[in-house]
Amino acid sequence: MTRGNYAMPMTDEKTSVQLTEARVWEALKDVNDPEMPISLVDMGMVYGVSVDPQERAVTVKLGLTATACPAMDFIREDVTKRLCQEGFRRVEVEWVWDPPWTKERISEEGRLLLSCWGISV
């Protein structure tokens, strides 16, 4: 669950910090899969991000673990909320099925975290 994900204080409201793709990736590390205790990035669900700094817009391509994901709304909501904190005005989430998400996409750190929760991958 995503409790406490939004605790990060926003100190750079002045937008002096550039809206880069690296920053989006960093921010997405704070957004968890609503059904797993690890982030979308560690789950390997982030397939790509593209930033338009002029428009302050970002598109995030996400590969869901299952076509039947019951939490699409939650994920979209959490990603949007977190990236708006970074200073984006428009956040678009695009679902990607190709190539399909597989367990191999989970990061080393993700695996470690999941095993701490008693979930084997």
């Binding site: 299952a66 076509t67 099925w97 190709d98 190539p99 399909p100 998400w101 597989t102």
Partner: peptide
């Protein structure tokens, strides 16, 4: 075409 692989995986 883009969704077939995922469906078949499941």
């Amino acid at each position: 075409r883009r969704m077939v692989a995922k469906i078949l995986q499941e």
